[in-house]
Design a binder for these strands. Structure first.
Lengths: 237, 237, 237, 237
DNA sequence: TATGAATGAGCCTTCATTCAT
DNA sequence: GATGAATGAAGGCTCATTCAT
């Protein structure tokens, strides 16, 4: 799984070959096919793996107050990505783009969508119950938030236009969340905690990273400075 | 260009081969490489072609009143796509997903983003001038609209979840446009005119479409009924 | 052995993998290689197994009168095969076709040829002794019979031309056996007993046979109706 | 085609790879796939090629008297094969053994059977008309001859038992042809002319033949001496 | 301008066989 | 005696690209 993650980041989905995965392993390419029926099945399993990781991370934040959770979520989704995140999102978008052709992927990604949406809805619902949010339809609002954040991120890294992130964040806070928050509640400028990273995907691979030369690196062209670093594997996509 | 469009719709971007394009042409595959340096260059040219088409179509609606233009834009973007649109968006997302790896594509898509954003900003600005919209920052709002619409559409067709379209439309109208429209102006339920299609891409190819059997069709799984048909080639993506 | 038989019938020789055999066993693929040095050795052993079975079956008919034995032999060889027989002959021809390249197979098949030819010669010799056959050279006649029957059967199932079976039977009776039988002896239209099947190869495998879908079935295209069923494993081939 | 023939002879059908064919060519493996849709299609075309060759050769002998043509046919079919013929028959039997699984091959081989049978029937019919053969059913007799000759040859080279050839020849002459020939006509010991070889398949490949070491040579184990040499490609099989 | 032919570099997958346990 | 895991060596096929004509 880790090898798949790395290969995906370094080569992108369309260059993701059985070999590129095996190369990041101490096993042979054949071994991959011993454990998985096909490259596609392996990738499907990888999506599943990401979902599990995300699920666990959501769980870990469940105790926090709704407003903070929402802020953490927004920050997590719309923070300026570091190189690794960028690479991953990039590759993962390629994968998502295959879903319309691939029933297995689509099914997994739906599962992922369910979990993500449920997580947001839960936050909203808890906030309503807690009185920090006004009455509203959490289902619709979560759909709006996911769509706009996702769209913003996609436009950000496909176009190399970081402003989408900030702008959509600001506009969402001003126009959407303003409606959703209770009258005297204010949306924090910055989250009080960071949405946890998937630590299964953070590793020492950095070792030979400098040596690599032939990978397919997404072009980084930020206008803004990156600060937070957050290894993902979020099933957002 | 038309052949490229068709091949893209019928095979998707990742299955788009020089041959699949040439097959939809009365020229040979070699002729493609005579006219273009590479397959990539051809595709880049195709994006350019789409942009030009979009530009012309925007021009044709420029005379309309701002609110109607906005409504037409929303409808165009968030209408339930027919099969052709679906296929095209699907393929085009694959292409967009390559942009981070491909400077040429990225440049073209940026151009496309410029035009699209400018078009929306223009509508917003005209609306402010005309007094149908309140004072606001058109640049930010257009970014929000594009991001959320794009995200909604992407989630709709990658996940086969049509509800994203309707929900995001409704929420956007209620929460975002409510803020933007002047106090007593109401956003129309339906646009008074349809954003024009790119008629260069509508053709008689339907002839042998029934015969085709091996293409790679995006899975259609709408819960809602399709009505409008709108051949695109929009540079939104 | 049974698993090998089944795998051979269901997959053919060239698709016969160690896995396909192990799958029809309650042991693992590795176990196969523990007991046999190679897949080839296993198959060689299987041929041996067939030979033993055939030998035993010949033995069981030894008490019968020569003419009846000959008739049973002819019927057995030239009867319209049922699906199982067909599948087996088909796979076994593939195996026989390897004999020229494979000393071990060839040796086993020679042994098989010896036994088959001896069996026929014995019948002929007994018939001469018993006065039902004229004096002739049993060695040559048995070679002719085996060759023509074998050729008929091979042409029948490789070409899907069942007529070879009937025609060669009729012509052999009229032209060859007419010479061999004593003046007033007539060759029976049908044998008075059936040459015994190899019952080690008849089993309950039929259970999940209906479920199987991916095997490689020889095309059945009989013009005539099958009646007799006769599980083989004859070393004729 | 010639490369296919050579590869078939030298490697056998089951080791016949696209590479093994291309290696005998001054073209690349890819070139093969440019001209043929698949390896199977290439082989199917090769069978067709053989058929055409055989057809042409039959044509060339049509002027000869029936008895001589029959004798030439018998000699051609049952003569002790030289190494090349042996190798070819061997490989071709492997191919024939695939026919039950392969509709395309089966169809081609049926065509081949038609031509071969028709050729023999024609000889018999002409002989009846010419009075050298008695009245008989040419269709049945040709089926018998083909089956027994084919069976004899198959047993000969799969088992390495050359006696099948001679014995079946002698017995056929004595028992079958004796019935078929007109009362005072005698079957010649040797044909007055040789059935023509397929000269498209005879070439200078002998050059590096000595150098080859890894091929898969059918085991030659004749007890009798080879005399005639006859490059085939006969569709008999 | 156009093309038929050709190709090198890969890719996914299969399989007999090995081996540590 | 038995097995799960692993692998090297192929093999069929694809495709962007080149090139002689």
């Amino acid at each position: 799984m880790l090898a798949t993650y790395e290969a995906l980041c370094e080569e992108g989905y369309s260059d993701l070959t059985a070999q590129s995965i095996a190369d990041r392993t101490d096993r042979s390419k054949s071994a991959l096919f011993y454990h998985y029926d096909s490259r596609e099945a392996l990738v499907a399993d990888f999506i599943e793996y990401l979902i599990e990781g995300f699920d666990a991370r959501v769980e870990r934040t469940r105790a926090r107050p709704p407003l903070e959770r929402l802020a953490a979520f927004v920050d997590w989704f719309l923070a300026d990505p570091d190189d690794d995140e960028l690479a991953f999102h990039t590759a993962f978008l390629e994968l998502r783009a295959q879903a319309p052709y691939n029933d297995v992927y689509r099914e997994k990604l739906r599962e992922s969508d369910d979990i993500l949406r449920t997580a947001v809805e839960e936050i909203l619902r808890d906030g309503i119950d807690a009185g920090v949010f006004r009455a509203h339809d959490p289902e619709s609002v979560s759909a709006l938030l996911l769509a706009s954040f996702d769209g913003a991120r996609i436009r950000q890294f496909t176009l190399g236009r970081d402003e989408y992130l900030e702008t959509v964040r600001a506009e969402t806070v001003d126009r959407v969340l303003a409606d959703v928050l209770a009258p005297d509640v204010e949306f924090p400028d910055e989250a009080s905690f960071e949405f946890p990273r998937d630590d299964r995907l953070v590793d020492d691979k950095m070792a030979d990273e400098a040596t690599n030369e032939t990978e397919r690196e997404p072009h980084a062209e930020s206008d803004t400075e990156n600060t937070a670093s957050n290894a993902e594997g979020d099933p957002t996509e």
